[in-house]
Design a protein around this nucleic acid. Structure first.
Lengths: 219, 219
DNA sequence: TCATTATTAGAGTATATACTCTAGGCAGTC
DNA sequence: GACTGCCTAGAGTATATACTCTAATAATGA
């Protein structure tokens, strides 16, 4: 594998494990047993590394959220979208963790992320539309659908932060993909009241698969 | 005013304006035109300053979310709770912005924040209960109420981050309290489907007061 | 073969930042 | 006056971190 790709891969790995804020370019170089000079031969600065990783992330999610228009949506589709989005969130979890400071230190990233958010919100709205067309949820007026999409987005993108902060277990809250996917339970909770009677039970069953363990069920 | 209090006040101000990550103890001292040594006479380290500010925040929110048990809840109460919580969020807005790294660097804060979250979730759940008792929303099973409370919490605590990241306007996204309170619109969106027919219109009217301007209504 | 280009090492630098240390001022009080 | 306790100044330090520079080595192509 090319050094350049190794840098991207290791950076992602280290960022995810310990947070972008805590990983220096020297750490990355040391992790790969290459020199700092070598790293800076391949990337002008740390922001460039982050930006490139963001673009991968973007591409992945865009790919998953490409809603086919030529056929009706099924419940399986919904399950797939949710699983995929949370998989992406997991693979690039460092990103939402330090989002604000990342955007502060790179205007490109700010613009790119804003556009990304917009696309995601559109996709979520489209999913709601198609769910309604398929008779899985009741149809909703545009304004309501927008507001709901936004709430879905807020829950999805911040569920991990909640888990990390709410975790009681010791100082170093280690997360698992499994726990992260309990966020799907929360997302489906948002849709609950809009389900059609025909699909209600099936969605409840799906939702039940992601029910959090008792420890996290506070409140 | 005592130097110690001035330090707390200036710190909060600077943290809110530019983020805790970007404000050093030297900045704080310079802002107050005192020496670093002076600052460190009053506080052992930066974490202690942050922790003390957190305790103020905690106290404020706890005070607002002290739900009286001796009388039924009104819609005005709900409006008051929402307004108060968002006021608190605004006054201490640096906190949620850099939450993760703050908790990473201070175990006290991690524990304190976790307990704080739990109390808030309980309060939100209690509000839902009392809204149901008052006939404003339909009664809900415990599990649903817990999940909904959690969603409300996620929306409330992350609405500001969303605004800051979604703001297109230039590099330096300046927020206003007014914009922040559009979060109330999002929170009330969550409750919409559970409203009783008698109160539906009144809550919709309340919600309308916080409708975001068009620029933010994407998705 | 040899010149050119791509890659790498590794020492080094400028800057920032949290924090320390020493000396001293000032108010009250015996 | 001098002692005491609180407060303040400000120079200074250890460490970290993003990044640079030069020179050497490998790879490539004519």
């Amino acid at each position: 594998m090319k050094t350049r790709d190794k840098i991207l891969l290791s950076s992602l790995e280290l960022f995810n494990e310990r947070g972008e804020r805590n990983i220096t370019t020297n750490h990355i170089a040391a992790h790969l047993a290459i020199s700092p000079g070598n790293l800076y031969y391949h990337f002008r600065n740390k922001s460039d590394i982050v930006y490139e990783i963001f673009q991968e992330y973007e591409k992945l999610v865009d790919y998953y959220l490409d809603i086919p228009e030529d056929r009706p949506m099924t419940l399986d589709d919904l399950a797939f979208y949710l699983e995929s989005v949370f998989d992406g969130l997991w693979s690039y979890r460092f990103f939402h963790r330090d989002l604000e400071s990342l955007l502060d230190s790179d205007p490109r990233l700010r613009l790119g992320y804003r556009a990304f958010t917009d696309r995601c919100l559109v996709s979520i709205g489209r999913i709601f539309s198609k769910l309604a067309e398929a008779g899985i949820i009741e149809a909703q007026p545009d304004a309501l659908r927008s507001a709901m999409s936004l709430n879905v987005w807020l829950v999805i993108t911040n569920w991990m932060a909640f888990l990390k902060t709410a975790h009681a277990s010791g100082q170093a809250p280690e997360l698992s993909l499994r726990e992260l996917k309990q966020g799907i339970y929360q997302v489906l909770t948002l849709e609950l009241p809009y389900l059609t009677p025909e699909y209600r039970e099936r969605v409840l069953t799906l939702r039940e698969k992601y029910r959090p363990a008792l420890a996290c069920q506070n409140g």
